[in-house]
Design a protein around this nucleic acid. Structure first.
Length: 426
RNA sequence: GCACCCGUGGUGAAAUGGAUAUCACGACGGUCUUCGGAACCGUUAUUGGGGGUUCGAAUCCCUCCGGGUGCACCA
């Protein structure tokens, strides 16, 4: 979800003429990671550096670590030691294993992101942000932050009831998520100096960002004035919450492959790249069609459709239009403006495209565009069913071809802005 | 308990405060010698309850009901 929405917003922003830098904030370090590393090291008694071979292995270690930690208090000391060494980047067995896992994991991540049609220009890791964030918090204690029960916390003014008190540095001296986000702000603004910084996260984090931004405002007003937080809902899988910590959840790749199976069933004769495009369209569309912010329950059985309101429906309309144009060969010259003819509904819709795009950009809401494209495709399909486009005897043929061409173009551009590509055939 | 978000046909969704609330799925009935049927046409059914603001409310305010999320060392 984050990828689909983020990518679309990125593309909309670029289209509006802005220079956009898409960065990701990978969660490479945490107590949870330390737990996973603990499990991994335990299995590698001979002491050589762990070589991850499978992404599933890492996921399992994460889940197992969480479970093990909750059930067995005797390992807490060791896990904390691991965490400290990771945070301090101290050369040690665990740190080397961590580096190997991180490298492997990032490779996997970049792969899937590329498959989805995205690209990040840069990364700011939580580990870096944690170091910077911790420093910022320490420098501003006690002026902004307060010591409490061995931890360093931020207490908002009393009248700001809607903002929670939050721990920024825990009693072990490690930065929490809050401090890391502070560090992220600092690194982001230092590295890229943006006019506008858009955070895209799920909506569980709204109150978290309120605290962070409230604190940040006192450090650097600029950061907050230039920051926008867009949230999206969460995806449940067949009614089940997905949590990487608890396990048993599908990865984005699994989701995509499930969809791909359906596509294969439907059209075995397509080449693999096209099947992938259709599958990605189906998946992304089901996310982007709704206003961001709502939760989506994903069930491969029911929630994916290739008909009606769907990504493939849009692709189909575009492919079909292109196919007609190809068959028509060279476009005839435009007819004279004097020809009398009714303005088709399709044409009326076509005119609105720029306005819709502008609207989507202004409110960072890709779903306006999705809705519009759907209307256009429906209108075109309906028109198509009643109109013979290639018809030499029809004086309106040039007009009809021009309409077809415009539709093809608008659908292509519109899908592009959504991060969905238009196949040649399907 | 406090705070934030949400509630639209059977289901999933749309609607800068503006005309008769728009699509899709489902169900039912049609199109089928056609430039691509992942299509087209028709039938079906909807704003949680109650107040208020407004010439006008799905949209704004209050309240009740129902659901979700967050509230100190996870991210």
């Amino acid at each position: 979800m984050n990828n689909a929405i983020g990518e679309s917003i990125t593309r909309l922003a670029k289209f509006s003429g802005a220079e956009v830098t898409a960065i990701s904030f990978p969660s490479d370090i945490s107590l949870g990671v330390a737990k996973a590393i603990f499990v991994i090291l335990e299995k590698q008694i001979d002491g050589h550096v762990f070589e991850p071979k499978d992404i599933v292995l890492l996921g399992d270690a994460y889940v197992e670590g969480t479970k093990h930690y909750d059930e067995d208090e005797s390992i807490h000391a060791r896990v904390k030691e691991i965490a400290d060494n990771l945070y301090a980047e101290k050369d040690s067995l665990e740190f080397r294993a961590f580096v190997a896992c991180k490298e492997f994991n990032m490779g996997y991540f970049e792969n899937i992101v590329e498959r989805l049609g995205s690209q990040f220009v840069g990364y700011i890791y939580e580990s870096e942000a944690g170091i910077v964030g911790k420093k910022i918090v320490e420098e501003n204690t006690p002026s902004i932050f307060t010591e409490s029960e061995g931890a360093i916390v931020y207490i908002p003014e009393e009248e700001k009831k809607y903002i929670n008190t939050a721990v920024f540095i825990n009693s072990q001296g490690n930065p929490t998520y809050e401090a890391k986000d502070l560090g992220l702000l600092d690194l982001k603004f230092e590295k890229y100096n943006p006019d506008l910084s858009i955070f895209i996260t799920d909506h569980q984090q709204v109150s978290h960002f309120k605290v962070v931004l409230d604190a940040a405002e006192k450090i650097h007003k600029d950061w907050v004035e230039k920051s926008v937080h867009r949230t999206h809902g969460r995806m449940t899988f067949k009614g089940q919450k997905m949590s990487s910590r608890l396990g048993g959840v599908p990865l984005a790749e699994d989701l995509l492959n499930a969809v791909l199976d359906d596509v294969k069933e439907k059209s075995a004769d397509l080449d693999d790249a096209t099947k992938d495009k259709v599958a990605i369209a189906a998946l992304k569309f089901s996310i982007l069609r709704a206003q961001a912010g709502k939760n989506i329950d994903f069930d491969p059985e029911t929630s994916l459709s290739f008909e009606g309101d769907s990504g493939p429906y849009l692709q189909y309309a575009g492919v079909r239009a292109n196919s007609v144009l190809e068959k028509a060969g060279v476009l005839p010259k435009a007819e004279s403006k004097n020809t009398k003819r009714e303005i088709s509904d399709v044409e009326k819709l076509l005119v609105h495209f720029p306005e819709v795009v502008e609207n989507s950009i202004n409110s960072w809401a890709p779903h306006y565009l999705t809705t519009y494209l759907l209307e256009l495709a429906q209108s075109f399909n309906s028109w198509y069913a009643h109109t013979k486009i290639i018809d030499e005897t029809n004086p309106n043929m040039p007009y009809n071809l021009a309409i077809t061409k415009s539709v093809a173009q608008v659908i292509k551009n519109g899908l592009e802005l959504l991060g969905i590509s238009l196949p040649e055939r399907m």
